[in-house]
Amino acid sequence: MENEAGALSRVAGLFSARGYNIESLTVAPTEDPSMSRMTLVTRGSEEIIEQITKQLNKLIDVIKLQDLTEGTHIEREMLLIKVRAMNSGREEVMRLTDIFRGSIIDVTEQSFTIEITGASEKLDAFIEALDKDLIIETVRSGVTGIARGEKSLRV
């Protein structure tokens, strides 16, 4: 999309006005600073997805749109999670973080902050694997995605 003030609210407004649901949305400028790339995750029947696609294309600020699920693609999401980690618990959390190929990026006497990137299901699984009582805070980036292979979204 055009990297314009208001472009994001046009997308968000479209979804709320037409009763579509946004599961997650990420957006940031691209290597060409006049453009932003947004990855939006939504759900619906084939007809609804078709309408969403057409309605988004109609927005003047949308330059190009691709339904990543039409081809093979890669989805990634990042999770930052702060957990209580004391005494023997620390070992356990470190081991789990290793298994999920995460990294501990901040440490205090009482806690770890862990970063994990991957498909959303992997992040879900990590959270599942932790003892609920240990979790202090979580934040997820929302999904970003890209097509596999040569296929690309370019203007």
């Binding site: 003030a5 208001g6 006005a17």
Partner: peptide, 14 residues
């Protein structure tokens, strides 16, 4: 004005 009219215009500008 841009916010109020957004859902009922083809496009708007500030």
């Amino acid at each position: 004005s841009v916010g109020i009219t957004r859902p009922c215009v083809k496009h708007n500008f500030l």
